[in-house]
Design a binder for these strands. Sequence first.
DNA 1: CCACTTTTTTAGACATATCTAAATTTTATT
DNA 2: AATAAAATTTAGATATGTCTAAAAAAGTGG
Lengths: 219, 219
Amino acid sequence: MITLSEENYIKAILTLSLKSLEKVSTNSIASEIGTTAASVSDMLKKLLEKKLINYEKYKGVSLTNKGRVLATTIIRKHRLWETFLVDCLNFDWSEVHIVAEQLEHIQSEKLIDKLDKFLEYPEFDPHGEPIPTKEGIIPNSNAIPLNKLNTFTKGLVMGVTLDEKKFLHYLTKLNISIGTKITIEEKIDFDNSLNIKINDSFHHVSSNVAKHLLIKIIK
Amino acid sequence: MITLSEENYIKAILTLSLKSLEKVSTNSIASEIGTTAASVSDMLKKLLEKKLINYEKYKGVSLTNKGRVLATTIIRKHRLWETFLVDCLNFDWSEVHIVAEQLEHIQSEKLIDKLDKFLEYPEFDPHGEPIPTKEGIIPNSNAIPLNKLNTFTKGLVMGVTLDEKKFLHYLTKLNISIGTKITIEEKIDFDNSLNIKINDSFHHVSSNVAKHLLIKIIK
DNA sequence: CCACTTTTTTAGACATATCTAAATTTTATT
DNA sequence: AATAAAATTTAGATATGTCTAAAAAAGTGG
């Protein structure tokens, strides 16, 4: 069972992860949530225990795949509820946030699927932010395929353009999922394959893999 | 600030109050909520502190006016959300309860007013239960005016049919509000006035007052 | 490379909400 | 009215999530 408080931390960690390449710091989480570094430190132990984050003392935090899926789901719920509040209930877009912060924690997959359908599968919330899919993918405007990036460009994986079991399985093996940080280390002219850095380890991927990975450039 | 847990207790107390004339017992609350009598005992102290209940050790519980208003609001929210789930999202009426149990605790008066409007001010939820008004009145099907009741009939005040300041002020003075238990002690033929028992004290009311009080007969 | 600053963690409290087991009060029965 | 049974409360624990203050680790500049 994941508590409301844990959900808020996981969401904050994703939000911060999307802003920079660095691992997320205890202090940044504290200021994002509006609490103390001590409280964050306590909570990180619990989140590690539940395998929602990767965490070493004094070394910062990143989300595990499980954590990323959870965080994305919460953001999906938040943005769908915001859409409902503005489109159906005629709320002003500026006042929906606090209400959606409560609604995003309602536990019912069925509810959110039915709400999605009722709203006719909106792609963007009232603030223009993309609504993550049921599968945990954050559809992205500024995301471009990995093979179009220049050497030494850094970016975050925002989604994939191929929904094939073997492909997704391969990505998992490479430790690539939504939100994973990738740096282009070298482009090989011969076959358009790439040497890339995934988190802290180096890998080689084919052009065919690269063209199906959507990346948002950061920093 | 009222916590989620406190809201659940207050709601349970109203539910039980509407079923019988007796003061609500610790054990009945425990089985309604699904907890132990010890936990209920602890919580009752907190609710008394917050002036949401009338409570004396070993003597049972009743809601104060403040508590009744809160409880009615929660039921209003619950029933409006159930209506939304069934009418808009095509949930089956049998599966909405657990989701509505979560949604009923969302804190936003504006949200519930707008939802009410969106649903076009429904009078009954999908289970046929009346939806309390914004003012905390539980509209009632089987409620009849106090002056139509026979001697020694017992009932609960379900609403009023006169929305006049002086009238409501007078009811407050008599300690009458939604959910108050009334027994007809004597009907006076001369002017159709009544001697009634309100909770444990006796009062005399005019025919004019009696005809504007809606009562649901119990037991 | 050593001292200073910043960041992070730990230690120890506190509040909420729950539990089990024991004590107390009320109620029912003989 | 005494005693047994039932209901209720208290005592003492536990778990979550928070805090302040102190300790420890990491980073920074002369």
